[in-house]
Design a protein around this nucleic acid. Sequence first.
DNA 1: GTTCCTTTAAACCAATTGGTTTAAACAAGA
DNA 2: TCTTGTTTAAACCAATTGGTTTAAAGGAAC
Lengths: 123, 123
Amino acid sequence: MPTDALSRVFAALADPTRRDIVARLAVADATVNQLAEPYRMSVQAVYKHLRVLEEAGLVSRPPGPQPRPVRLEAGAFDLLEEWIERYRRRAEERYRRLDRVLAAMDQAGEHAGEHDEHEERQP
Amino acid sequence: MPTDALSRVFAALADPTRRDIVARLAVADATVNQLAEPYRMSVQAVYKHLRVLEEAGLVSRPPGPQPRPVRLEAGAFDLLEEWIERYRRRAEERYRRLDRVLAAMDQAGEHAGEHDEHEERQP
DNA sequence: GTTCCTTTAAACCAATTGGTTTAAACAAGA
DNA sequence: TCTTGTTTAAACCAATTGGTTTAAAGGAAC
């Protein structure tokens, strides 16, 4: 439980049932029983899944009259996208750069082409 | 291991060490020993982490001379972003719609406002 | 107040996970 | 070939996870 927020979000979405719940909540709020109905597991198991999603900040259960609805929290997705975007972008840049290097090596001949390019020397 | 691709990717990134590895690979390829150096765990543990990342398609280890480099595979990020984008967008739309409904309820008086709006009736 | 549904809690279980250590197979360089 | 560094594999361990069942507490409606 003392794991960081990002780990909690990723871990929460690593389970197919939990992703399915998120998918269904994306189209409409639902009560726990509604959510549990299609699955072949106990209602308590669904409560457990919801607690995981809740602790990850992906879902909230606003208080109110008894069959409390479960609501998708769009905010947690931003955390994810921020992280992913950051590294994906860098990776793609590196690929483009690598492609240029390979192309240059290709037309220059293959005598100097070794595997020492991982020492970064970009500005 | 018979889990689906998306689960593997999410699970792989649910570990901070693994995310750190990805982050470092985003700036430059590295050998396993280079990757393992800053951590206080055994090199074998890092190999295990890399196997997880590899099976998730986030990383590849192109064959070649002995200290084989580890390379970030940008492709797997697309899977993630695709999934996230889909549901985040829907969730946001629903929020906007809900805001309108609430605003309408607000200026119409609060006698009819119950919690039955999760039966979707959008076209 | 009782009864019924919803929610939370607890004890338990099998499987997975993130590590370890030890050992063996591979590849290169001297 | 011998030695050294890299990679993979195996056996083990503690902690976590995704489920279960059972039980109890909270709220609504009658």
